[in-house]
Amino acid sequence: MKSKTLLYQSACKECGVVLNYNKSDTYHHFYCPRCGALVYASGERFIRVIVMALSALIAFFPTFFMPILTLEMADQTVSTTLVGVVMHIFDEGNPAIALMVGITGMIIPVAMMTLLLLMLVPLHFKQRPLHLKALFQIYSSLRRWGMAEVYLISIPVSIIKLQTMGDLSIDPGFYLFFYFLICFYICIVWFNPDDLWHGHVLSD
């Protein structure tokens, strides 16, 4: 802040060492010299993150209504959607488990994608987003509680469990959810929170 050099001062989150690094070099990863923690990871351009977040959201909303799995057993058929799973457990008298699954598996990932769009779309058009600080704080508090990928892996595991009980078919909802997750993951990896504050967009 004192001078106009591009040296940027920060500290390691994991061991507390004060670090100086060159802010203009945004193409490399920096690791803490003492404990080896990842200090800075280069991010992709906002437009790419925006495209990924949008395609994740577009893929997600149909999965509300599309069945993910159908099980047939002695002339009876049960098919379920992602939301159906949560609703059914709620009705069955296990609201705690329903909330756990619903919030970590679906609500948080969608909220994260929406927050990303709210922050990045205005920045892409060189505007200051409304409530940027508040949005970022919500985003970073949600970061470690999103478990969509765990939900995804649990589906093939259940498929194998269910196969012994009856005729099972995998429905389009599963593939859409899979697509949503890939986009979600790429989004999280590409987005570097540092760019919100130090990005070229704001500096000019």
């Binding site: 799995l69 099980l71 049960v78 379920t80 159906g84 799973v85 949560v86 059914h88 457990i89 069955e92 296990n94 488990i97 329903a98 699954v101 598996g105 478990m147 765990v150 939900y151 649990s154 589906i155 595991v157 259940s158 469990k161 269910l162």
Partner: peptide
């Protein structure tokens, strides 16, 4: 999550 899906299915 597996238990959740099993219950629903």
């Amino acid at each position: 999550f597996v238990v959740a899906i099993m219950i629903a299915m």
